[in-house]
Design a protein around this nucleic acid. Sequence first.
DNA 1: TTGAATTCATTAACATCTTAATGTACAAAA
DNA 2: TTTTGTACATTAAGATGTTAATGAATTCAA
Lengths: 142, 142
Amino acid sequence: MAKPTPSLTVALLQAREAAMGFFRPLLNEHGLTEQQWRVIRILKEVPDHQLESRELAEIACILRPSLTGVLVRLEKTGYVKRWKPANDQRRLCVALTEAGHRLFDTMSGDMHQQYRRIKRQLGADNYKTLMTLLEQLQRVEP
Amino acid sequence: MAKPTPSLTVALLQAREAAMGFFRPLLNEHGLTEQQWRVIRILKEVPDHQLESRELAEIACILRPSLTGVLVRLEKTGYVKRWKPANDQRRLCVALTEAGHRLFDTMSGDMHQQYRRIKRQLGADNYKTLMTLLEQLQRVEP
DNA sequence: TTGAATTCATTAACATCTTAATGTACAAAA
DNA sequence: TTTTGTACATTAAGATGTTAATGAATTCAA
């Protein structure tokens, strides 16, 4: 009689919700959506703070059609710039602007503080183990 | 100079995306969205296969305004039924229909098979550890 | 070199997310 | 009892998720 097993994907979602509870107020203060912040954050940690939108979509877990709109709005608020590289007009490049860098730096302190609070509640060892396992899970494929 | 730390919330998202890759084809075959399946799945594992929509929203990580629409569509396709309990007309109750139970049972085998494939790639011990840590993370709060 | 595949971004249409605002039903205080 | 407060679901509006379709640029094969 088909019994449900505790769901991995639901557990991941609920855990993420719990974690996002620490950051959402800060994002709201700065008028950013989760996706906009992911884009800024990912661009910040990449060489040249610049990516092709295809790669950005993959890393940020934002589908291409959604990313189109996210980038339009982020450009409108001045945090990123977009352009098509001359050698391949199909592609689209994205980079952080100066304002984007400043925004990240402004929010960075509070972000770190929230991370410390999560680590304190979960335990530093548990936190490290969890990150390792998540990286392994990221690499599974059908 | 504000350096980004590997992001827990992004890691959770990417890991979930990897896991969902195993299930999305199955959901599509049956014309279900992720949220619709979460509702069915959660109702299945609850006593009486029935919940107040408030609790359901919390467990399924679906905000109340979204859940309204999800339930309307799930009722339209016949997998759940909704009603207001006589003693408190503010609340809304939801339960699986017969068709809902049959759908779950039909999909259950394939779902379990995908879980086995994920476990095989991640390792049974790792899988168990991960689930435990996710449950702990779910309980952190700001 | 021409024409058929391929690779991108974007648009379209519908479902869901997110916050704020509404409205109704119940509960508690005056 | 009337008033005030509270707990719900729902609506509203803009942003995003999701799949399929479109269209432009590039690549590859004939």
